[in-house]
Design a protein around this nucleic acid. Structure first.
Lengths: 242, 242
DNA sequence: TGAAGTTGTCTAGTATCATAGACAACTTGG
DNA sequence: CCAAGTTGTCTATGATACTAGACAACTTCA
């Protein structure tokens, strides 16, 4: 037969092989610099045709995760960003600690109106005016996540412009006199990247993302901003400390 | 053209549509019982053929997430288990709080030897004897996660048999005189389910999973067990509190 | 009752996915 | 240098995926 034995999952075989190899890299079975097994051997372990393996390796190579050398073998090159989820987490500090250069990039800002959900998170009334900020965060030149951030337009008038100028949520809050803040309850889910985020994160369609919803509070527990962030799962791992 | 405009991702179009709709359900754009837009309208928003939408809806229907009614429309039916990640988390309590019946099922246990990695987590020497326990946890009859658990075979002799009898990690530890324990540092990543876990979790191939690595300690901070768990992302959401 | 809107089913054509086999081009190690 | 092992390229074939159009079957509502 030509497709996988089980009912079709909507995921191509070569893609499953690629994911398997990538998982092997992520969990250390193959370290950076290591030589992968030969294409024939991989084909045997996954029970697919060698051409299917080649398609998988080509996809990984295009994403810069492996590198093929004719006559010699295929070699690994990659690593994930460790992202601690403490109550006081700053993106720039995490990326800096990894020896990489943090960047923020504004996609767009707009005026918005609080849904019931958003109003509850921010302690406002439904229909209250909000500022919505859509932004990307990068380590060196690699996009790590896209975030949609909402703030009260009354408490933070002109927040969009301030973020455009500072490109930092911490500096934005400082501008309004907020000296410190903490992350509150955080929801983590996984999903598949949609077309818009795929383009922003420079991810191929169909790749997994970590979805994080969190609300930041000031030291008195008053909600300040609420965020909906989508992380490229292949570039980051969250660390929850206790 | 027949495939999506961008370079092929290895994920079928119908699957992307299905994921999009499922995401809409998960984040509340469509509530349980709601009527989805018509097939023609969905086809237009995703810019695909109506047949492709039908394939997507058929897949969701087979998983029990939507239900089609001829002549009337397609309706939603589903919900995710909220899983708080506190330092003191018990699966049975979480599931019970959701009004569902928790179950554990043993897949297999085996003797194993500590890799350098496992030894470091458990505070043992590399090569130390371990007990490995492979188990599934369910809410009502829905598999939520598969876990691979390792314990020192010297500190917990016969742990495999004890777990087989009790089907609970908490009771297992009690059996060895451990009255209370806490979760230590926890790593969360996302990936794609492999064939083995897909069968165990009753998931179609290619679906996203949340991968959690954690080590439990006693109250003195001494490591007891270390776990590698794979959660069906579509059935659970993690809550990180601060 | 009838029109509009819905899901269900059929036929058909093109592109992609996966398989299979053969051989070229290159690297490594004896 | 040579043999073994590696990646690269070619041709060919069948199964799926996606698109397109048409119409049937059913529900809802005026």
């Amino acid at each position: 037969m030509s497709m996988q034995d089980t009912a079709s999952s909507g995921v191509a075989l070569w893609r499953l092989v690629a994911d398997g190899i990538e998982r092997g890299i992520a969990d250390g079975r193959f370290a950076a610099g290591d030589k992968l097994p030969g294409e024939v051997e991989i084909a045997e372990t996954y029970r697919v045709n060698r051409h299917t393996v080649r398609r998988a390796l080509a996809a990984l190579a295009e994403r810069g995760i492996v590198r093929a050398e004719r006559g010699s073998g295929t070699y690994v090159e990659a690593q994930r960003l460790a992202y601690p989820l403490r109550s006081r987490t700053r993106f720039s500090e995490i990326v800096g600690a990894d020896g990489r250069e943090p960047h923020g990039r504004l996609i767009e800002t707009s005026e918005d109106v609080a849904t019931r959900e958003l109003a509850r998170e921010l302690g406002l009334k439904a229909g209250a005016p909000l500022v919505r900020i859509e932004a990307i965060r990068l380590a060196d030149r690699t996009p790590i996540c896209v975030s949609t951030t909402w703030l009260s337009a009354e408490l933070f008038p002109g927040a969009g412009e301030v973020f455009a100028a500072t490109r930092s949520m911490t500096k934005l809050l400082e501008h309004y006199g907020v000296r410190d803040y903490r992350r509150g309850a955080t929801r983590i889910t996984a999903g598949i990247v949609d077309a818009t985020d795929a383009a922003r994160l420079d991810l191929p369609l169909g790749r997994p993302i970590l979805v994080v919803d969190a609300t930041d509070h000031d030291l008195d527990g008053k909600p300040l901003v609420t965020k909906h962030s989508r992380f490229a799962a292949e570039r980051v791992e969250f660390l929850v400390e206790s």
